[in-house]
């Protein structure tokens, strides 16, 4: 079985001028790796506009609402070292989610755990190599 988080789904040096651009980058990546179909991106943007997916510690978890557009459970990690304004919060790491089952639950549980510890959260959002990200979220 394929991993929920693949190395090619980790981008460490992206730039986004707006929250929409950042969410779109995550959605595009999920489409590129074959985890979601094109309409999923619009759904992610819609969800973000209705309720922010900011979860704290400069991390947001953009995801869509239309499971029909999800092809398999997958997560992407996109780092924005310059930060992105997220309705007044600063976001420097996005964990994009496409899920139709429970394949991503363990990874999100681990992320929740990391975010409880500021030091671990910082290590994750300041990671400069893919290996570190994969290891932290494994």
């Amino acid at each position: 079985m394929r991993e929920v988080l693949e190395a090619r789904a980790v981008l460490l040096n992206e730039h986004a001028a707006t929250r929409e651009e950042a969410v779109e980058r995550c959605g595009r990546l999920l489409v590129e790796i074959g985890a979601a179909a094109e309409p999923y991106i619009a759904s992610m943007l819609e969800r973000e506009r209705s309720i922010s997916t900011y979860v704290g510690e400069q991390v947001a978890i953009p995801h869509g609402l239309n499971r029909e557009a999800v092809l398999r459970d997958a997560v992407c990690v996109v780092r924005f070292p310059g930060g992105v304004d997220w309705e007044g919060e600063r976001v420097s790491l996005c964990v994009g989610i496409a899920a139709r089952g429970d394949g991503h639950v363990a990874l999100l549980a681990e992320l929740a755990e990391i975010l409880l510890y500021p030091e671990r959260a910082r290590a994750l959002r300041e990671a400069v190599d893919v290996e570190t990200v994969l290891k932290e979220l494994a």
Binding site: R47, S50, I51, T53, V55, I61, P62, H63, G64, L65, R67, I97, A99, H104, V105, L108, A109, L111, A112, E113, L116
Partner: peptide
């Protein structure tokens, strides 16, 4: 949550613990 996909999963994991 709206999709039961993202934020609710994270909060549920924390609460369970």
């Amino acid at each position: 949550c709206d999709a039961g996909m993202g934020s609710s999963v994270m909060l549920a994991a924390t609460l369970r613990k």
